[in-house]
Simulated scan of single mutants.
Amino acid sequence: MDFKKYKTFQVVADTLNLTRAADMLGYTQPTITLQLQSLESELGVTLLDRVGKKTYLTPAGKVVKQYVDQIFALSDEMETELRKLEDPHGLLTVAAPEFYCTQYLSLIIHSYISENPKVKLQLFSCDSNDAMKKVAVGEADLAIIAGPCNSPQMETMPLGKEDLVLVTTRELFEQHDTRELLASYPFITYKTGSNIQRLVNECLQEYGITPDKYIECVSDETIKRTVMYHTGTALLGSALVEEELRKGTLAEIHRFPGKIETNMVILKKRADEQNIRSFSEIVQRIWKEWG
């Protein structure tokens, strides 16, 4: 199939004027005439008629014109889609716990949008389990989570490790010994079944304590704020409480090194999508710089 002949026919059929078509295509009139004759011979039909000085499409020419328009429209659509692979654009949805959203992703998003201005980013704040579920059902394109992901459908990219720190306020820490504190005040933690809660339970067992009183919260920030009101104790990621520990607002009771593994997860079947790949590359690059 000689696309040049079909393009020539399309332009002639649009203009119904050989002189104007020649100017638009940059051909001579004899060249256009030869291409049209060759196409008619190839198809075995007459495409154009002339009555006086006017050019008309034959019934066969009208049919061919309809299909030629569809062919070139599909060709343009294909080229547009191919350009998308080279130029990230459209909507990209990221799901992550609140702490990752506020402390890490805000900077990453700024860097990503600077490099990819045609992409519109949407950020969901939710716990790690919900973030993975959103990726699994297509409500999010990728997720940043605390803890492991064991789904065979997911590709997991480790970003780093973080300590878990058992903390309380400086006042409570100075007023009570550790066992009394843990026995008398509630343990403030994540909701049952969450990804990070399993890590917390492992640490509690390792430390040899089983709190009698619990308060469950939906986010890291809520847990930290509840602790800071002298409510009790909590196990939190070191990055979340680093500033409060430095200022002395919170006190460290015990530290569990490298317990939180931060991962980025995406569906394996979507790993090669340009938006996802470009975002995951910048996340890994910036996280490595922080590491």
Rank of each mutant, 00 (worst) to 15 (best):
R277H: 03
S128I: 10
Q205Y: 08
L39F: 04
S111H: 14
T31K: 13
P186K: 02
P257F: 08
G138W: 04
A131N: 03
L43A: 02
T80V: 06
G44H: 01
G26L: 10
Q197V: 06
L36N: 07
I144M: 14
I113E: 14
P88K: 00
E42C: 02
L199W: 01
K65H: 14
A13S: 11
Q274H: 00
L48V: 15
C203H: 04
D14W: 06
P88A: 00
Q103S: 15
R83Y: 06
Q37M: 14
M1D: 07
K120I: 14
S106K: 14
L267R: 08
Q197P: 00
K269M: 05
E115G: 02
G61K: 06
L159F: 06
K268G: 06
V94S: 00
T55F: 11
S194Y: 07
L240M: 13
F3V: 11
H254F: 08
E98G: 09
Q35S: 09
C217T: 09
E243W: 06
S194I: 03
E261N: 03
P88V: 08
I108T: 11
C126K: 02
L18R: 04
T31L: 07
L121N: 10
L36P: 09
E162W: 01
F124I: 14
A239F: 07
K84F: 00
L159W: 12
V64R: 06
I282H: 05
V119Y: 04
G147Y: 10
R20N: 09
I145Y: 06
R277V: 00
R285S: 12
L245G: 00
L105T: 04
G147C: 09
C203S: 12
A140N: 08
Y56H: 11
L204G: 08
P152H: 07
N201Q: 13
T28F: 03
P186S: 04
V45D: 11
F187Q: 01
N116W: 07
D87I: 13
D2P: 01
I266T: 15
S219P: 13
Y56W: 05
L91Q: 13
F99D: 04
E81V: 12
F173D: 01
F256N: 01
L57P: 02
Q29A: 06
I260T: 14
G232A: 09
G291L: 07
Y190C: 00
L245W: 08
D272V: 08
E171N: 09
